[in-house]
Simulated assay, not measured.
Amino acid sequence: MIPFLDLKTQYLSIKDEIDSAVLKVLESTQFVLGNEVTALEQEFANYCSAKQGIAVNTGTSALHLALLAAGIGAGDEVITIPFTFVATVAAICYTGATPVFVDIDPVCYTIDVNQIEKAITERTKAILPVHLYGQPADMKPIMEIARRHGLTVIEDAAQAHGAEYKGQRIGSIGDIGCFSFYPGKNLGAYGEGGMIVTNNPEYAHTMQMLRDWGQERKYHHVIKGYNYRMDGIQGAILRVKLRYLEKWTEARRANAAQYDALLKDLNLTIPTVMPYSRHVYHVYAVRSPQRDELQKKLNDQGIQTGIHYPIPVHLQPAYADLGYKIGDFPHSELAAREIFSLPMYAELTSAQINTVADSLQGILQGVTV
Rank of each mutant, 00 (worst) to 15 (best):
V273N: 04
V273D: 02
V273T: 12
M274G: 02
M274S: 03
M274P: 03
P275K: 06
P275D: 00
Y276G: 00
Y276R: 04
R278E: 12
H282R: 11
H282K: 09
H282C: 13
H282T: 13
Y284E: 13
A285S: 14
V286W: 04
V286M: 06
V286H: 04
S288H: 05
P289T: 09
P289E: 08
Q290R: 14
R291L: 08
E293A: 14
E293Q: 14
E293M: 10
L294E: 12
K297P: 00
K297N: 11
K297H: 12
N299L: 11
N299P: 02
N299D: 08
D300V: 03
Q301N: 05
Q301M: 09
G302Q: 01
I303N: 03
T305Q: 03
T305P: 02
T305F: 04
G306Q: 12
I307Q: 13
I307P: 04
H308N: 15
H308W: 12
Y309L: 15
Y309M: 12
P310F: 01
P312C: 03
P312E: 02
P312H: 03
P312R: 01
V313E: 02
V313S: 04
V313T: 14
H314A: 04
H314L: 04
H314E: 07
H314V: 08
Q316C: 11
Y319P: 08
A320V: 15
D321L: 15
D321F: 15
